[in-house]
């Protein structure tokens, strides 16, 4: 057997996955906490205030990483969902449905912190412009994936339906990303790759560190949720019964 297939078979085995991720998760949490502490220290203590927006620019260190995560997680779900549907890999189905609540949480944070930023700067909590509207649609898509999974009794069937919705909904991702270019929006354009000076390095560093930190949050939270999903789905299987009798 070639090494790739061997790896897939091993990670695809629930007891193996359950045991190994159990060791990995505390490390992911630790890295998340350390990076968050550094990011917040740089963002709140070291970083200067903005020439136009004053102290509200500090909302960026939470808002922008959350918004990036909201899109990245959905993209992952679509890719994993596609592979899971074509090759029927159970572990990927589990990862798709375990990702959805984490993605929904980041989408909620992006929307709420955006609202808290919009009120003092733009003068409004909410507008129906293309960027804000498409991000709200993303939140509904996450809810849709979760609800679809819970609507079925048979977990494999449920995960396949949820995977399908993940793939279909991924069409919203380019709409969110390019909304600020395609249409007139109240939301400003991307700070990256434009002609302007973009984000000053002293503000960019805390932003990038926080953006890295939330990826470790996703990793730790996703694996925790995936382990729970495996326990639920396999509660009549031998390995779970062994696990239960080992614990005291």
């Amino acid at each position: 057997m070639n090494p790739i297939m061997l790896f897939i078979h091993k990670t695809g085995s629930p007891p193996w996955f359950y045991q190994k991720t159990g060791y990995l998760i505390p490390w992911l949490w630790a890295i998340f906490l350390v990076l968050t502490a550094i990011g917040l220290y740089l963002g709140f203590v070291k970083a200067p205030v903005d020439y136009q927006q004053g102290t509200t620019v500090r909302i960026m260190y939470l808002h922008v990483p959350s918004a990036w995560m909201s899109m990245m997680i959905y993209g992952f779900m679509a890719i994993m969902g596609f592979i899971a549907l074509v090759w029927r890999i159970r572990m990927l189905e589990v990862l798709v449905i375990s990702s959805a609540p984490v993605g929904a949480a980041f989408t909620m944070i992006a929307l709420l912190t955006g609202s808290m930023w919009g009120r003092p700067m733009w003068g409004t909590f909410w507008v129906w412009d293309a960027r804000l509207t498409s991000e709200l649609v993303l939140l509904f898509l996450y809810f849709g994936v979760i609800a679809l999974y819970n609507a079925y009794d048979e977990p494999r069937k449920a995960a396949r339906a949820a995977s399908l919705l993940s793939i279909v909904g991924a069409f919203n991702l380019p709409i969110i990303y390019f909304s600020v270019e395609w249409w007139n929006t109240l939301h400003q354009g991307s700070s990256f790759g434009g002609d302007g000076p973009g984000i000053h390095p002293e503000m960019l560093w805390p932003l990038l560190i926080m953006a890295t930190a939330v990826k470790f949050f996703y990793g730790a939270n996703l694996l925790t949720r995936a382990r729970l999903t495996l326990l639920k789905q396999d509660h009549r299987k031998r390995w779970v019964q062994d696990l239960v009798s080992e614990e005291h």
């Binding site: 102290t55 509200t56 949480a105 909620m108 709420l112 912190t113 808290m116």
Partner: peptide, 18 residues
Amino acid sequence: PFILASYLLGTVILSWAA
């Protein structure tokens, strides 16, 4: 208040998720 509210909401939602 807006900055505090942002980080408070973020902490509550992430704690729930975790």
